[in-house]
Simulated assay, not measured.
Amino acid sequence: MRLTSFYPVICTSRIDETRAFYTDLFGFEVTFEADWYVSLRRPGPPAHELALLDHTHPTLPEAYRFPVRGLLLNIEVEDVDAEWERLVERGGLTPQLSLRSEDFGQRHFIVADPSGVLVDVITPIEPSAAFAEQFTDG
């Protein structure tokens, strides 16, 4: 199989607020918009895609028409400290996890979007010796 695209679709009751979160704070652009679906793309390279879907829309099987729960999106950036300042200190977002360095090789913090999706903003760092052996080549 040759993939031509792969992206998450967030099922939400808060399409407008969630669209604004990703466009205003993370640089995504709207490529399609209806009252029940928004397609977002962050120009690249590489380009990144994300979509938002009204969780009550009949395109979803009825048994699955619920808002998103338990989703964590990782966004890797060059300078997580600068993003902490921009998004939390100046931007007023409430951290769900404060900025910190992890032995497993990440400096990161977590915020939540209006739909309750956690957004983990990460800069990779050197892992501790205990974790370095667990990484594979590639």
Score class of each variant (00 low, 15 high):
T59G: 12
H57V: 15
E49T: 05
R90N: 08
A51Q: 06
Y37H: 13
L97P: 00
T94A: 14
E102S: 08
L87D: 02
E85V: 15
F104Y: 15
Y64V: 07
G70V: 08
V88I: 14
L99V: 07
L40M: 11
V80S: 10
R65F: 10
T94S: 13
L72A: 03
L87M: 07
A63H: 13
E89H: 01
V77G: 07
V111K: 08
N74K: 05
P61N: 06
E89D: 08
R100I: 01
E76Q: 07
G91M: 02
E78F: 01
R42V: 01
E102Y: 03
G105M: 09
G44L: 08
T59A: 11
R42D: 01
D113E: 01
F66S: 06
H55C: 15
F104K: 06
I110S: 10
P58F: 05
R65V: 06
P45L: 03
P43R: 11
V80G: 06
T56N: 09
D54H: 12
V68T: 12
A82V: 10
R86G: 04
L99N: 05
I75H: 14
V111C: 05
L73P: 02
P95T: 11
P58E: 15
L99D: 03
E89A: 12
P61A: 09
L71S: 11
G92P: 04
S101R: 14
L50Q: 04
G92N: 03
Y37W: 13
L50E: 04
G92W: 03
Y37M: 07
D79R: 13
A47E: 09
A47P: 07
A82L: 06
S101Q: 12
R90G: 01
V111P: 10
V111T: 09
G44H: 11
E62A: 15
E89M: 04
S101D: 14
L60H: 06
E83H: 09
T31P: 01
D113C: 05
G44D: 08
F104L: 05
T56M: 09
G70T: 07
R107L: 05
P67E: 03
E33F: 00
G44M: 07
A63Q: 14
L60G: 09
L72P: 00
P95C: 07
I75N: 05
D54P: 04
A82S: 12
P43S: 10
H57K: 11
H108K: 14
V80P: 04
T94E: 13
A51E: 02
R69V: 14
L60P: 04
W84V: 02
E62M: 09
A34C: 02
I75S: 06
T31S: 14
D113I: 00
E49C: 08
Q106G: 00
S98D: 14
L53T: 03
D81F: 00
P114Y: 01
L52G: 13
T31L: 12
R65W: 09
L60E: 01
L87P: 08
T31Q: 12
L93Q: 12
F109T: 10
L60F: 06
H57G: 12
V88L: 09
D79T: 09
L72D: 03
